[in-house]
Measured scan of single mutants.
Amino acid sequence: TFEVERIVRKKIVHGNTSYLVKWKNYSSKDNTWETEDDIRTKYGDLVDDFEK
């Protein structure tokens, strides 16, 4: 199971928000862009903290 360590960046393309996710126990080269809906479902607190 993958676990988010932190959110690195945010991008908005054509009105759709995605977050660059750093995965726990993986290197930064393994970071992936994930949709806001996918990340918010399980890691809403991390998204809220990133947006502060």
Rank of each mutant, 00 (worst) to 15 (best):
residue 45 D to H: 14
residue 38 D to R: 11
residue 46 L to Q: 05
residue 27 S to H: 10
residue 52 K to L: 11
residue 21 V to N: 00
residue 8 V to C: 11
residue 24 K to Q: 08
residue 41 T to S: 13
residue 13 V to E: 12
residue 5 E to Y: 04
residue 11 K to F: 06
residue 32 T to P: 02
residue 6 R to Q: 14
residue 14 H to R: 11
residue 17 T to K: 07
residue 24 K to G: 03
residue 4 V to R: 01
residue 36 E to G: 07
residue 39 I to T: 02
residue 44 G to I: 10
residue 52 K to M: 12
residue 1 T to A: 13
residue 30 D to L: 13
residue 52 K to V: 08
residue 38 D to C: 14
residue 20 L to C: 11
residue 14 H to V: 05
residue 32 T to F: 03
residue 49 D to G: 07
residue 47 V to C: 04
residue 20 L to W: 08
residue 44 G to Q: 13
residue 31 N to T: 09
residue 33 W to E: 00
residue 1 T to Q: 12
residue 38 D to T: 11
residue 41 T to R: 13
residue 12 I to Y: 06
residue 33 W to Y: 04
residue 25 N to P: 07
residue 8 V to M: 08
residue 15 G to D: 04
residue 18 S to Q: 14
residue 13 V to F: 10
residue 32 T to L: 01
residue 48 D to N: 14
residue 29 K to N: 10
residue 13 V to I: 10
residue 26 Y to L: 15
residue 11 K to P: 01
residue 47 V to T: 03
residue 21 V to W: 01
residue 11 K to L: 07
residue 40 R to W: 04
residue 1 T to M: 13
residue 34 E to K: 06
residue 27 S to C: 09
residue 31 N to E: 06
residue 49 D to K: 09
residue 2 F to R: 15
residue 22 K to N: 02
residue 36 E to V: 06
residue 19 Y to R: 00
residue 21 V to M: 02
residue 46 L to D: 04
residue 18 S to F: 15
residue 50 F to K: 05
residue 20 L to R: 07
residue 8 V to T: 03
residue 36 E to A: 11
residue 6 R to F: 14
residue 20 L to H: 02
residue 10 K to T: 05
residue 27 S to D: 13
residue 49 D to H: 11
residue 32 T to M: 02
residue 18 S to C: 15
residue 49 D to M: 14
residue 48 D to F: 09
residue 22 K to P: 00
residue 38 D to E: 14
residue 4 V to Q: 03
residue 2 F to C: 14
residue 9 R to W: 09
residue 41 T to A: 13
residue 23 W to C: 02
residue 21 V to G: 00
residue 33 W to I: 00
residue 34 E to W: 10
residue 17 T to P: 05
residue 13 V to R: 10
residue 46 L to R: 03
residue 36 E to N: 03
residue 21 V to H: 00
residue 13 V to H: 10
residue 30 D to T: 07
residue 31 N to M: 15
residue 43 Y to R: 05
residue 39 I to A: 08
residue 42 K to P: 03
residue 39 I to C: 07
residue 25 N to Q: 08
residue 51 E to L: 06
residue 37 D to C: 09
residue 40 R to T: 05
residue 43 Y to N: 07
residue 4 V to F: 05
residue 17 T to C: 05
residue 2 F to I: 12
residue 15 G to K: 06
residue 33 W to Q: 01
residue 52 K to R: 13
residue 9 R to L: 11
residue 13 V to A: 08
residue 33 W to F: 02
residue 10 K to S: 06
residue 48 D to Q: 08
residue 35 T to L: 11
residue 16 N to E: 13
residue 24 K to L: 08
residue 4 V to M: 08
residue 43 Y to H: 07
